[in-house]
């Protein structure tokens, strides 16, 4: 299984990474098993596979939220588990996170949830003051404009529809300008047309190129095929294929999503 290489310095490199529920590698509760993955700068990687395949955990390893029980991790040139305090914050500010559940404070006005993307670079004091008088209005309005929500900057986020909230989450990442975007099923709760927009914004395939590297987990292989330039298939915590979208066959996908004969169907 040779990773695709474009010759540039890798943004993320996982070597023999395993994650399990306990502290030690365990045959009973493996979540990720022996993952080798190299992601180069500017790549748009889509993680595909059935629910429970380990997509979310793999993203969490990349974001540093989950530490592997074995193997080595390097993200943006460092192992996040070796960082703390200021250096950790600086590292994290280069990561853009979009989760399935959006994870934003709904009572806040939209502009604050967009500005939340800058918290890693703002001092605590200016972050708090911005809640009284919103900072970076121009920049925030500009990214909101790109997701089509310029007129809702001062609406409370919970007055927005589900799809609009999803776009706020994207705007937050646009505002953050991270080096690596880690998105976990960002399209799961929106209609197909909007899903296409969201993927386009996250992968920088619409408008100007974003300049960042994207790792995104998606449910629908077609979205991945359309927006990503690399597809990684995960099943039962292992990488089963890692190819350019054009090289992923229908048989590959059928195999990836087939019902597990020994277990309950896990989705797809």
């Amino acid at each position: 299984m040779t990773p695709v290489s474009t010759g540039r310095a890798p943004v993320a490199e996982l070597t023999a990474v395993s994650v399990s529920l306990g502290d030690r590698p365990s045959a009973l509760s493996p979540i990720l098993v022996d993952i080798d993955l190299v992601i180069e700068a500017g790549e748009r990687v889509a993680l595909v596979g059935p629910s429970g395949a380990g997509k979310t955990t793999l993203l969490a390893v990349l974001s540093g939220m989950v530490q592997p029980v074995a193997g080595s991790v390097s993200v943006l040139g460092v192992d996040p588990s070796n960082l703390s305090g200021r250096t950790l914050r600086a590292h994290r500010s280069r990561l853009g996170i979009v989760n399935q559940h959006l994870d934003m404070a709904l009572p806040l006005q939209v502009i604050h949830n967009v500005n939340a993307g800058r918290l890693g670079r703002w001092s605590t004091a200016s972050s708090l003051w911005s809640l009284v008088r919103a900072a970076g209005r121009n920049e925030a309005t500009e990214v909101l404009d790109r997701v089509g929500l310029a007129d809702r900057a001062f609406s409370p986020t919970d007055t927005l529809s589900g799809g609009e909230r999803q776009r706020v989450a994207v705007a937050r990442v646009l505002r953050q300008q991270p080096d690596l975007v880690l998105a976990d099923e960002p399209t799961s709760s929106v209609d197909p047309r909007l899903a296409d927009d969201v993927m386009g914004l996250l992968c920088g395939t619409v408008e100007a190129p974003s300049g960042w590297t994207t790792v995104v987990s998606v449910h629908e292989p077609d979205l991945a095929r359309h927006h990503a330039d690399r597809m990684v298939g995960l099943r039962d915590g292992r990488i089963v294929f890692d190819r350019q979208p054009g090289e992923v066959s229908v048989a590959d996908l059928t195999d990836l999503y087939r019902a597990n004969p020994t277990d309950h169907p896990t989705g797809g």
Binding site: G64, R89, R92, H112, G120, S127
Partner: peptide, 14 residues
């Protein structure tokens, strides 16, 4: 926190 916000800022925003 995962995007580098300080604890206090994350408390106020999140």
């Amino acid at each position: 926190r995962a995007t580098g916000a300080s604890k206090l800022a994350a408390l106020f925003y999140g």
